[in-house]
Nucleic acid binder design. Structure first.
Lengths: 236, 236
DNA sequence: CGCAAACTTGATGTTGCTCAAGCTAGGTGG
DNA sequence: CCACCTAGCTTGAGCAACATCAAGTTTGCG
């Protein structure tokens, strides 16, 4: 169960990765596990590009990935960050709808799409597990749509902080932020400057502390949550 | 194949609805088709509410539905409009993540979640079909995220017009707009006034014509597409 | 230690929002 | 059949939030 360990705090989500299922199947068939070996990407390196043929499925084992779409003039929108346990390319699409890049050094497992599709048909539980993961993604995307369409800058930043805080140790109020301000801005539909100013404001109001960029301390989680939920934007 | 007919222009998407699969299964088992009968909702009526227990799956047969999320102070974000052939509640979630309301008079088919889950396990092609639909939704959601985060008002409105135009007759340049300006605004992350002003601007520039609200004519599809894609925002 | 990339802060600008009228159209009742 | 009434739409004026432009400052790496 070495792969399972890579997925730290994925809530109640069935962390049934491709690797897990492959291993399971092979084991029950008396074969040696055929899970691919790890491979690595350095920060900034591209995994695949929007429009490319989608022939692989990736599984993040360590590090952080960003998925984004570009407009012709260079405007960028990050749709999602991928942490260990997450997967990309599940969609039975022929072409990637976004670009995937390493934010930090990343360890990955790559699976051929064909093997994946076979697994869907052969392993009864697998299709269900993939469906659940895709649905969870969809749900997160809808939350992101609400954020982008209707929340103000402070609410966006607060939501973001809680999101990555929850993804790390549950109650650890010290959050690691491996992504740059530019990444955060492009995720929240803001500019770098607005993100920076908003963080400064949250610091002044003593909702958070900023020991260093790349590290954020949540001081008043309650107020931050109320802000993120869109309750207490008064004063912002 | 009466259900199929309800789905007019769904591109290449496998329009494998629950009804279709139920009918197939029953037929092959020599039973009478057990697809539920149609039922109706008047404009403005609610199908289900965010937070409610998700025990049903709905299939739009006729009319238009809106799905939305609310913030505590009433800000609304419409995440999606559902047209004939579309389905809601596919996600294996216990609770609806949004509210569903009728925009126009709507004809629906409702299926018990339990029957649906059985179908996933029993009918081999069904899980795959559902997965594809969910993935398509996810892809659309990501497009919406790009729109909300990085497009200006004119680009948003242009994208919206093309989206609903493509959903109707492919090359019919007269588009029916059953939703109000308020719906459009809440879908695009704008206000009613901005939507109205932007439409007027597009009319003045002769990209569209507005015979009446509720009816829009696309005059210059090429320019509209370039605007929607984020190429020619110059002048807007 | 020096350099480049990332971050912060300030001054100014612009897009889209808010508030406030009018306008239009469709439905209802006289 | 027409007049009214209301919901929805359009238009205008002023404003606020966030973007842009422009320095400075910090940080981390070679």
């Amino acid at each position: 169960m070495h792969v399972q360990a890579a997925s730290p705090a994925m809530a109640g989500a069935a962390s049934a990765t491709v690797a897990n299922f492959l291993e399971l199947r092979d084991r029950s068939a008396g074969r040696l596990p055929s899970v691919g070996s790890l491979y690595f990407k350095a920060p900034g390196e591209t995994l695949f590009t929007e429009g490319e043929e989608a022939d692989s499925i990736y599984e993040v084992v360590r590090g952080l990935l960003r998925l984004y779409k570009l407009l012709p003039d260079g405007r960028r929108q990050i749709t999602r960050f991928l942490a260990p346990g997450d997967m990309v390319g599940l969609a039975p699409a022929e072409i990637y709808a976004f670009t995937a890049e390493a934010v930090t050094k990343v360890a990955l497992r790559r699976h051929k799409r064909a093997a994946f599709e076979r697994l869907i048909d052969e392993e009864p539980g697998f299709a269900r597990s993939v469906l659940r993961q895709t649905s969870d993604e969809l749900c997160a995307a809808q939350e992101q749509i609400l954020l982008l369409g209707r929340k103000c800058a402070a609410e966006k930043v607060a939501s973001f902080l809680l999101l990555i805080a929850d993804r790390q140790g549950s109650e650890a109020e010290e959050v690691e932020v491996p992504m740059t301000r530019s990444d955060i801005a492009d995720y929240l539909g803001l500019t770098i400057e607005t993100v920076s100013r908003t963080l400064t404001k949250l610091k002044q109001d003593e909702l958070i502390a900023l020991p260093s960029p790349g590290r954020i301390l949540i001081l008043d989680r309650e107020q931050l949550e109320s802000l993120a939920a869109g309750e207490g934007a008064a004063g912002f």
